[in-house]
Protein backbone atom coordinates (compact mmCIF):
# COMPACT_ATOMS: atom_id res chain seq x y z
CA UNK A 1 0.00 0.00 0.00
CA UNK A 2 2.64 2.51 1.03
CA UNK A 3 4.46 1.98 -2.27
CA UNK A 4 1.81 4.28 -3.74
CA UNK A 5 3.53 7.51 -4.66
CA UNK A 6 1.69 10.54 -3.38
CA UNK A 7 1.87 13.84 -5.24
CA UNK A 8 0.72 15.73 -2.17
CA UNK A 9 0.49 14.89 1.53
CA UNK A 10 -2.17 16.42 3.76
CA UNK A 11 -1.92 15.87 7.50
CA UNK A 12 -5.26 16.26 9.28
CA UNK A 13 -4.06 14.71 12.54
CA UNK A 14 -5.92 16.05 15.55
CA UNK A 15 -8.77 17.51 13.51
CA UNK A 16 -12.33 16.38 14.09
CA UNK A 17 -15.38 16.14 11.85
CA UNK A 18 -15.99 17.88 9.45
CA UNK A 19 -12.50 19.32 8.96
CA UNK A 20 -10.74 16.25 7.44
CA UNK A 21 -13.15 16.10 4.48
CA UNK A 22 -13.25 19.87 4.06
CA UNK A 23 -9.47 20.03 3.90
CA UNK A 24 -9.37 16.98 1.61
CA UNK A 25 -11.80 18.65 -0.78
CA UNK A 26 -9.77 21.88 -0.80
CA UNK A 27 -6.51 20.00 -1.40
CA UNK A 28 -8.02 17.90 -4.21
CA UNK A 29 -9.37 21.03 -5.91
CA UNK A 30 -5.80 22.24 -6.32
CA UNK A 31 -4.55 18.97 -7.85
CA UNK A 32 -4.44 17.67 -11.40
CA UNK A 33 -6.40 14.64 -12.69
CA UNK A 34 -4.39 11.47 -12.11
CA UNK A 35 -2.50 12.79 -9.10
CA UNK A 36 -2.68 11.05 -5.74
CA UNK A 37 -3.33 12.73 -2.40
CA UNK A 38 -2.02 11.09 0.77
CA UNK A 39 -4.33 12.17 3.58
CA UNK A 40 -3.51 11.40 7.20
CA UNK A 41 -6.19 11.64 9.90
CA UNK A 42 -6.57 10.60 13.54
CA UNK A 43 -10.36 10.98 13.63
CA UNK A 44 -11.75 7.39 13.54
CA UNK A 45 -14.88 8.75 11.82
CA UNK A 46 -12.78 9.68 8.80
CA UNK A 47 -12.58 6.00 7.77
CA UNK A 48 -16.28 5.96 6.99
CA UNK A 49 -16.36 9.62 5.93
CA UNK A 50 -13.65 9.34 3.28
CA UNK A 51 -15.38 6.32 1.74
CA UNK A 52 -18.63 8.29 1.62
CA UNK A 53 -16.82 11.34 0.26
CA UNK A 54 -15.24 9.48 -2.67
CA UNK A 55 -18.56 7.79 -3.42
CA UNK A 56 -20.37 11.13 -3.59
CA UNK A 57 -17.68 13.13 -5.40
CA UNK A 58 -16.62 10.39 -7.82
CA UNK A 59 -12.95 10.39 -6.77
CA UNK A 60 -11.10 7.11 -6.17
CA UNK A 61 -9.78 5.71 -2.90
CA UNK A 62 -6.81 3.68 -4.13
CA UNK A 63 -5.31 2.71 -0.80
CA UNK A 64 -5.85 2.82 2.91
CA UNK A 65 -3.73 1.82 5.88
CA UNK A 66 -3.47 2.29 9.62
CA UNK A 67 -0.23 3.37 11.31
CA UNK A 68 -0.68 3.33 15.08
CA UNK A 69 -3.47 5.79 15.79
CA UNK A 70 -3.24 7.33 12.33
CA UNK A 71 -5.43 6.50 9.35
CA UNK A 72 -3.78 7.01 5.99
CA UNK A 73 -5.77 7.36 2.77
CA UNK A 74 -4.53 7.49 -0.81
CA UNK A 75 -7.04 9.24 -3.04
CA UNK A 76 -6.64 9.56 -6.81
CA UNK A 77 -8.17 12.55 -8.51
CA UNK A 78 -10.15 11.15 -11.43
CA UNK A 79 -12.19 14.22 -12.36
Amino acid sequence: MSDLKADLTLDNSGLSCPMPIIKTKKAMDGMKVGEILKMIATDPGSVSDIQAWVKKTGQELVGQETEGNKFVFYIRKVK
Partner: peptide
Protein backbone atom coordinates in the same frame (compact mmCIF):
# COMPACT_ATOMS: atom_id res chain seq x y z
CA UNK B 1 -22.61 24.27 10.41
CA UNK B 2 -20.98 20.83 10.50
CA UNK B 3 -23.48 19.38 8.02
CA UNK B 4 -23.55 22.34 5.64
CA UNK B 5 -19.76 22.63 5.35
CA UNK B 6 -19.50 18.85 4.89
CA UNK B 7 -22.18 19.07 2.17
CA UNK B 8 -20.17 21.65 0.20
CA UNK B 9 -17.07 19.47 0.61
CA UNK B 10 -19.20 16.70 -0.98
CA UNK B 11 -19.90 19.00 -3.91
CA UNK B 12 -23.44 19.81 -2.86
Amino acid sequence: FILSTAAVAMEM
